[in-house]
Design a binder for these strands. Structure first.
Lengths: 207, 207
DNA sequence: CATTATACCGTACAAATGTACGGTATAATT
DNA sequence: AATTATACCGTACATTTGTACGGTATAATG
């Protein structure tokens, strides 16, 4: 879907989506204004007018929080896929990807998490396949045996996390792969986040 | 969870859940009052006080539509998983699993889509595993190669759908399984719905 | 018999909410 | 040079919204 929304309009729309996902309901004009530092609700009002005119939302007049997302399939919440993981390769982050996918509401993801598309079959032993979307939360401290997205020497990996007293181990589901051991003082290593869910759309053919 | 809610309180709670599911957000006091024919919002206010006191909801003071459902699992909308598919077995629909509260939610699932939990590894060739949740839409006409949930001779199957001029074929991902052929006049066959998505939570350990 | 919980009513009010009207400033288009 | 779209401001106002206070009536409980 081509977006003829301006940058600011896009930001506002994203904020609305974000609020809907985390709070379960769209924000009020005042909440939007406050978030963007506007001194008047009128400014928001005018942006919403523009966004509505472009067909991205529909508003129920006089109804509080009456912003409906037009692009949203009734039971699906759109959320941008911000990048790709293909194990072994650098973590690709799309520049300004408004490549939203329709995530089912059951996969109700916390606002602070993001989506990555899986490429390659390096995760097939974890039952995660090319095209699957993984939901990554960067604000969770990983517990042992959880899947994490990590960047090690500029290459991305998705592996099970195990913390030992002196090091961190990254295990693969497939025993043929060696365990990656990260010593405590190793600097070129970063946990990107914890994988909290996997979603796969079946609409298009998989096989 | 035992319910010590009164009949009316229960009705009001159900209405709130219903509104949340259909409109995406909880109602205002006025909307509740109008639905139940109350002449005052105060009446609703008092019922909500009671319901909150009993721990079923939590309210954000002063915030419009600030009714939170306490019973709602953090990452899941009140949309319940209504049954189980274990290929070869009858389609299990949970009777009224989670006590009075979940029941109305179940009854009110938008006819549009529902959730089934997958049991057994009969679908592993389609990369769907035990514990996964499939999202099924009964109102879509299946296209060729889409996964469908079907009931054939009282046993549930989840297979790829292929319509031929004179029959319907149900294919398995695993070529070792025979293709099921349903002749056009066969009666004991019903397409339950099209599998539109698979969701797997990674929060608890998978392996 | 007094108390408590339930189930309603009305009146009142501050704050929140959506919206209208009018204005300024910049950039792009015609 | 005139117009249009964008991006803000301020003031104003009728409703909506949540909430408080006070009252009535019934049924159940101690």
């Amino acid at each position: 879907m081509a977006t003829n929304l301006t940058t600011i309009q896009k930001l506002i729309l994203e904020f609305i989506i974000d609020k809907k996902v985390t709070d379960g309901m769209p924000p009020t004009l005042a909440e939007i204004a406050s978030h963007f530092g506007y001194k008047t609700r009128t400014t928001v009002q005018q942006h919403l007018d523009a966004i509505e005119k472009k067909g991205f939302i529909k508003r129920n007049p006089k109804l509080s929080r009456g912003i409906e997302l037009t692009l949203e399939d009734k039971y699906f919440t759109p959320k941008p896929v911000i990048g790709e993981v293909a194990a072994g390769n650098p973590l690709t982050i799309y520049p300004d990807a408004i490549d939203t996918i329709a995530l089912p509401t059951i996969a109700r993801i916390p606002a602070d998490s993001f989506l990555l598309k899986v490429k390659g079959d390096s995760l097939k032993d974890a039952y995660i396949f090319t095209g699957d979307i993984i939901i990554v939360n960067p604000n969770i401290t990983p517990k042992n045996s959880q899947f994490v997205v990590a960047v090690l020497d500029d290459a991305a990996v998705v592996k099970r996390f195990y913390k030992k007293s002196d090091r961190i181990e990254l295990h693969s589901e497939n025993p043929e792969f060696d365990v990656i051991i990260v010593e405590k003082n190793y600097t070129n290593f970063k946990i990107v986040g914890v994988v909290v869910g996997v979603y796969r759309s079946m609409e298009k053919k998989v096989g």
